[in-house]
């Protein structure tokens, strides 16, 4: 079982799709990391194989605020992030998770600032490999989810009832008439905010734009996959393809992200791709992270 050192915190994730060779993509990314752990395999949506790779990114620059002591393998206690010499210099070692399923590859790292630096390097390393980034049209998704903030999705051959529900939402307000800044942003979070009247009230201008003098735009959306009413995985995303999720020990949640994306993809007009590195346009995610830190 893969247990990332920093599994108790949220990771920044980008999801790549290649029209070329996915193995070559994975290889190019792993070439940027060190201390590769043995790959693990899991079963993804419709039984498709998922490969999970755990390695480390050495960095002389600290991205963490404080170190912690956690229990490592063999009941030993280690300090994370780990610190040791790499190429003659003391480095911190940060987890890099790489999950490949068909032609999709997820890259996940802890800390926003680390992602800002690493994802750009990944993009350059993948030049010519025909890689694009997946992103979700969150305005469209909010509209599809409607006032209840939930929608049933296709479950393939499975007999389970699958549902996507909203767990977080950040709305930006603009006032084209008054040009005021009286209200700029509202952030909601909860286990299933679609069940609340507050959510219904707040997304009404998104669903029915002509009924409101304010223009309301979702800029962040947290959504979860519920199987028979039980939450299986969740992620937060912005308009540009930045994802943030809690990985947890065993990284099951990141595996299940593929199921979540598969479910989202089954709703038409939601998933698209971009050649731009999402982290370079992550103002909403960064602001939210700062405000919620």
């Amino acid at each position: 079982m893969i247990v990332p050192d920093l599994c108790d915190r949220t990771y920044m994730v980008e999801i790549l799709r290649t029209r070329g060779n996915a193995d070559a993509v994975t290889e190019a990314i792993t070439a940027l990391t060190t201390e590769h752990r043995p790959a693990e395999e899991a079963s993804g949506p419709d039984g498709v194989k998922i490969q999970i790779l755990h390695s480390f990114l050495p960095s002389t620059r600290p991205y963490h605020r404080a170190t912690r002591r956690v229990e490592g393998t063999g009941r030993t206690t280690i300090t994370v992030p780990r610190r040791r010499k790499f190429r003659g210099k003391p480095n911190y070692f940060y987890d890099v998770l790489l999950v490949q399923c068909r032609r999709d590859v997820m890259v996940a790292v802890p800390y926003y600032a680390l992602a800002e630096e690493f994802f750009v390097r990944v993009d350059r390393a993948l030049a010519g490999k025909r890689v694009v980034y997946e992103k979700i049209d969150i305005t469209n998704l909010v509209m599809r989810l409607g006032q209840t903030g939930a929608v049933e999705v296709q479950s393939g051959e499975s007999s389970h009832e699958l549902q996507i529900g909203v767990t977080r939402c950040q709305l930006a307000y603009s006032d084209p008439q008054g040009r005021t800044r009286d209200l700029q942003r509202v952030y909601m979070s909860g286990s299933r905010i679609g069940n609340t009247d507050v959510y219904r009230y707040l997304v009404e201008p998104v669903l029915n734009p002509s009924g409101s003098p304010l223009m309301v735009t979702p800029t962040l959306l947290g959504f979860a996959l519920f199987m028979d009413g039980i939450k299986k995985t969740s992620a937060v995303t912005d308009r540009h393809g930045n994802f943030q999720l809690w990985v947890g020990p065993g990284v099951r949640r990141i595996e299940r992200l593929f199921s979540l994306l598969d479910s989202v993809e089954s709703i038409k007009g939601i998933l698209s791709t971009t050649s731009n590195v999402p982290i370079l346009q992550s103002r909403a995610m960064r602001t939210a992270e700062g405000e919620n830190a």
């Binding site: 750009v120 305005t139 709305l171 930006a172 307000y173 603009s174 084209p176 008439q177 040009r179 800044r181 700029q184 223009m215 309301v216 735009t217 979702p218 800029t219 308009r239 540009h240 731009n276 590195v277 370079l280 346009q281 992550s282 103002r283 909403a284």
Partner: peptide
Amino acid sequence: AKRIDRIEADPFAQGSTAVEEYSASVFV
């Protein structure tokens, strides 16, 4: 004003006309 703002179509607008919120980048 709505036609000038076009914030619903602008990938950098972040739902706001506030210039500080605009996320355009020379790397995008």
